[in-house]
Amino acid sequence: MATDKNKHLEEVLTSHKISKEQALLDKHIDKRKEISEALQEKYGSDLYSPFNSGSYAKHTAMNKKFDIDLIAPYKRNAFETLEKMYSSVYDFLYDKYKNEATVKKQKVSIGLEFNTDADGDIVKVDVVPGRELNKDQYPDDNNLNLYVYEQFGKIDKGSDRIKSNIKSQIENVKGHAEKDSVRQIIRLLKVWKFYNGKKPKSFFLELITIKAFDKKTISGDIWDKLKAVMEFIRDEVKSVSLPDPGNSSNDIADTLTDSDKDTLSYDMKRMIERIEEDSDTIKSYYPINEKFPPEDEQKSNNSYGVKTGIGLSVPPVTRFG
């Protein structure tokens, strides 16, 4: 039987709602708060108030991968160079958390992946150090310079050119006229990226989705909208420019190489063709999160379970309180 693409996509979104993993999200938020306080204690007046970024702030998060970022905005004179800022923050976080987390240098952030806790959960927080562009101007313009630790698409390692008004990036999605549809499509593309092991950064997918909504008339039901955005990516990814809303001289399109863009265009082409040919294939590109299947299906499948192998159940000595 053919799959109802719209119903399926709605179920994909529901099963990936971040609120489904509230307990895990709370752990991330608590840990981010702890890190923020530690940085404030260490750097004192050299640091403005750290703040949240990432998809949770933009309401485009999905529960398979939390994108919990902490932006640490430093004053202009706090460090001689951006590299020294990056190294100092890394050294501090490494010393503080080395026994309870893997601390690693990433493209523009320092990643902390905490050891599995008693519930089997892993908390990940990315700390993004940034330095204000002009002395004492950050409170007014929110502009920060980031340090690029490793090659990032076409952006060179060691570069300190990324100037980013991260607060503008957050507002970019939140302030879009069709923000609900934009968020839905961004979440779906993140689901596709996550389950299919694809390369584009989430930020890239966010910007190209917004661009598609700005350039094309996108209407209809959810499949129509997703298909329209995928067609835009297929046709335009190789030539599109995606100015960083935090700094228009940064082109986020440069975070992919030409070869990455060819692959992405082909992925979109192939995906559209296959789904149009056989609607069931939408399930493999955009799977439902099995941990939170749609309620009706979940209920109808539920039953009191019996372990494999038949035996007489005899419970152990048990203490109740």
Binding site: Y304, G305, V306, G309, I310, S313, V314, P315, P316, F320
Partner: peptide, 15 residues
């Protein structure tokens, strides 16, 4: 206690 019971080798019910 419920979790311990469910995981016990001599208990064949899951719930």
């Amino acid at each position: 206690a419920l979790r311990t019971i469910a995981e016990h080798k001599d208990v064949f019910i899951k719930n």
